[in-house]
Design a protein around this nucleic acid. Structure first.
Lengths: 298, 298
DNA sequence: CTAATGTCTTTTATCGGGAAAAAACAATTT
DNA sequence: AAATTGTTTTTTCCCGATAAAAGACATTAG
């Protein structure tokens, strides 16, 4: 078992969705582009679809025979990549249990606990290290730095520098830049979400990420753009497992986003700066109040 | 051959230096602390020193018998860690040969070329990716982004934001902070270097890094501190292999550093800001003129 | 009784191998 | 001829294994 075939399974599940909308599947390269996989994988998918009687496959002819049922899908947990599995396990340990600063991280133990090889864990930890939460001792273990107030403050400090600069750069974007249509789309989706009462975590969270990434993209600076990965990671996991005051938090954020979007569209630097600062202030406040360790807490 | 013993060899060479200064080596734990290795490695070192007749070892007694000759040292190339070897090879390819943006990077090919396993190359590339010069395609190759003008501009933009902020934070450091003594030491070394005519690359380069890291440390922000790794990496390799105008470049930098240090010691925000900006301006100019691709170059 | 040495155990760093997935090449089909 | 399918090669991803290095435990010296 050198490598799981999650790419195939995930693409297969996605491919099942296509069967609903059409009576004849497109060519193999086209399917590959749609599903984001190579032709090799596409052909494996088609082979199985034929086996399970979903399609009749003969060279270019890929006729849909029936709609897929619930049984046709691979179970969702088999579609996750190994790095996603490791990431989730690790973040759970980090955020749920009291992960004290200074705790040692043991590659071997982690690998055994998650049930994967050490190589994958090592690679994950290296990738994860850029988030500033762990640190490596040469030829030895990793050390946890703790998801605490200090981390939150350092993170938001950079975030604020970067976002203010990016927002300011927004006004210089040419009128025909695609960001303006994307901004309009985001505005509409925000209004839709504001109207709907059921504000699910993922719905707002995704909108939030899209808006901020769009703004950061105006910086045209890879380091600023990449830094949003850190913020996104923290927000994704932290708020996924910390639902206290979620409803109100999201309502406020949606309102602030709309004001922010409006300011961006006006191209008025002063208004942009004001709405950006306002939103960043409440984002920081929200994060700080939800972070475990309180300054000098006794 | 699962792992080379470069840690042992490097520590052994360092250990030879100690033999010159003393007639009796300290205890094993103490030696471990001095050489930065575990007792296990210290004992291997002592065992070999005894074998080659450098010391007489009997429990606590580690009497030095003779001074080490050139033959006693392990060759320098055997003391490099695998990641250093890979890093150097990779940077050479990146900076020397025309590394066009968009070039694919092949893990297997790179591994074969350097003569190491794929795992080590993979880990290196993951670690290296945070420098913003390469990007991964899922389940596929890495893509080079090119060490060009765009990169240099994005890098310096962040550098300037971070350093100005750090320098400004310097004035708030308490009088008894160890940074002030370190700053004094750096000032003295700068004066020494300014006097000496032979400005070797490494000498100034090391001073430069120490000064800027000291300043960045005043930010008390791990992201700012860590970002200096990117700058240090670029400067280290780029200027190591690009000696054009080195002499003058370093002379200017030393002078600017001295003014900068003086301003920091004065704790006058306006002077700090001015000298910092002046230095950053010439650093940017130096980098931009030495970067291959000129904007719109024909 | 503390700190050092002697011995044993665990973890890290790295390689080679093998299945999954991508990519390249060859043969068809319209 | 351009795109699509069929086939083969190469590369990525990941595991298990192993020597180097670290760490833990036991013993002894001062």
């Amino acid at each position: 078992m050198a490598k799981s075939n999650n790419v195939y399974k995930d693409a297969y599940n996605k491919g099942l969705g296509l069967l609903e909308t059409t009576g004849n599947l497109p060519s193999e390269p086209e399917l590959g582009a749609m599903l984001g996989v190579s032709r090799t994988t596409v052909r494996s998918i088609l082979a199985r679809m034929e086996e399970t009687g979903l399609i009749e496959w003969n060279k270019r002819e890929k006729k849909v025979l029936r709609s897929p049922g619930a049984d046709d899908f691979f179970p969702e947990e088999e579609t996750d990549s190994l790095s996603q599995i490791i990431e989730r396990s690790f973040m759970r340990r980090l955020l749920e249990s009291g992960a004290e600063a200074g705790t040692q991280i043991n590659e071997l133990e982690l690998a055994r606990e998650i049930g994967v090889g050490t190589t994958s864990v090592r690679e994950f930890l290296i990738r994860f290290s850029r988030f500033g939460l762990i640190e490596k001792r040469r030829n030895s273990h990793w050390v946890l730095k703790g998801f605490n107030r200090a981390f939150a403050l350092e993170l938001t400090e950079i975030r604020e520098m970067f976002e203010l600069r990016s927002a300011a750069a927004f006004v210089d974007l040419p009128q025909d830049s695609p960001v303006w249509t994307e901004l309009d789309a985001l505005e509409a989706e925000h209004h839709a979400l504001a109207g709907a009462i059921a504000t699910r975590f993922t719905a707002f969270s995704e909108l939030d990420e899209r808006l901020h990434r769009l703004i950061h993209s105006a910086s045209h600076n890879r380091f600023i753009v990449d830094f949003y990965d850190v913020i996104a990671m923290i927000f994704h996991y932290h708020y996924q497992w910390n639902k206290a005051g979620e409803r109100q938090r999201n309502e406020v954020a949606v309102r602030e986003h709309l004001a922010y979007i409006d300011a961006l569209k006006s191209r008025d630097p002063a208004r942009i700066d004001a709405t950006c600062r306002q939103h960043l202030r409440s984002a920081r406040h929200t994060l700080l109040t939800s972070v475990p360790e309180v300054a000098g807490g006794s």
